[in-house]
Design a binder for these strands. Structure first.
Lengths: 232, 232
DNA sequence: CTCTGTTCTGGTTATCCTGACCTTTACTGA
DNA sequence: TCAGTAAAGGTCAGGATAACCAGAACAGAG
């Protein structure tokens, strides 16, 4: 939520985005969830960390406004963007009534590494969040819950990976999101029975082990069932 | 969406509600989904049917505004109210930019029967909708999809029934929502294995058959997993 | 060249869940 | 007393899942 233009009898509309990336834990090295925060430069909550966002102009769609604000503050262009929830309690902002349409985005690890991290943008681990401005802690909590439940029936893991990937890479994404280890053999079976992911003939050599095959998403199949809205 | 107060550079916030009730089909007699529509009295779309709704005042929460608008236009007080989606495309309304926070509500059959149905409020079957104002057909379509997918893991069927109910009544609710018949024996097993619904010792006599037992929801258990927001 | 550690890959088994179907029970109304 | 109806409970096969085991294929050390 950006600067305030307080006024009575007016409901202002903002967009905020919860962005999630997969990066290694600094100590254990296992992949965990990270998200970028921006430092607020104005009141209210000046100096506090918050989710990237801004006001919605009259001539721009909600998703477009979320993506634009995200790019302007962090230079990130997410591989996945989905509406999460509209937060509109009366007391959310001390400077007037604000309804925030919150979006939820995933970025690939390469993008996250290349993203500008300066004075006012910082990546933090999802389970080590500081106290955020407004009700943003609650928003992040809800976003992570949605991520965990959605992973099961959708192909959102795709957003974290490149065009091709090994089964172990894909399994690491699932493990990071779900927070528990998965059996490699069973995971392989569940993926190979799904038409959304196809095996290629390519292999990856160079590791001290049997070379794994590369897989890719089957773009012809749309498995994620988001209902009549397509990608709501 | 109510009357327009067109102005440039301003994003107005409205709430609309998709309300669903279970009532018998006029010919077949089986229970199907119905929803109440209100006739628009002003431009744009004057004379067309639309979802009940209105503007959000600065001092009222989103869910509260949805419930109040719903009561004022239809006298309905839903047993269940949940946020569905925020629709905010630029061209939704011909009279300026409007972001509609759409809620989704269920009412019991008794309430639906007692509801005022006059010149400007009419109940229609979900699969025989007329052409609605704005993008409301698309909104209803999405709401019904959510209802069908959510029925599986939640206790929302409760909203359609009273305190106690027989398994057949509960099964009829599920059948109406899913649109297909369910095996009574298997349905019984799935319900009895769930801790959310408990069997009482009461029976219902009067039918020309073995008297069924009454069941009730276990209020101590919160099975519906709506995440950290509780009832988002 | 052989050995070893690692991960990939495929297979087996027990278990749970689901759907389809059948039988018995218990009531009302003719 | 009988017929009709729906409740209630049981069986059984098939599919999905989880846990576990074993061989295959590489890189690097010695």
């Amino acid at each position: 939520m950006p600067e305030s233009r307080a006024s009575r009898d007016e409901v202002r509309v903002a967009v905020s985005t919860v962005i999630v990336a997969l990066r290694p834990h600094p100590r254990t090295g296992t992949s965990v969830l990270w998200l970028p925060l921006v430092r607020r430069t104005r009141e209210p909550f000046a100096g506090r960390w918050a989710l990237p966002g801004g006001w919605v102009p009259a001539d721009e769609g909600l998703a477009a406004a979320a993506a634009r604000n995200l790019f302007e503050t962090t230079r990130l262009q997410p591989a996945y963007l989905e509406q999460l929830y509209a937060f509109g309690d009366v007391g959310r902002s001390p400077t007037g009534r604000v309804v925030s349409i919150v979006y939820w985005a995933l970025v690939r690890a390469e993008q996250a590494d290349a993203a500008s991290e300066g004075e006012n943008v910082r990546w933090v681990m999802a389970d080590e969040l500081p106290e955020l401005a407004f009700d943003h802690n609650r928003i992040v909590e809800y976003a992570l819950w949605r991520l965990r439940t959605k992973m099961e029936y959708s192909r959102i893991a795709h957003a974290f990976l490149g065009e091709t990937f090994t089964l172990t890479e894909l399994r690491h994404v699932h493990e990071a999101v779900l927070g528990r280890p998965l059996d490699p053999a069973n995971f392989r079976r569940s993926i190979e029975s799904s038409p959304a992911i196809v095996r290629t003939d390519e292999r990856v050599t160079g590791g001290r082990h049997r070379p794994p095959r590369l897989y890719r998403y089957n773009t012809a199949i749309e498995l994620a069932d988001n209902g009549p809205l397509g990608t709501p």
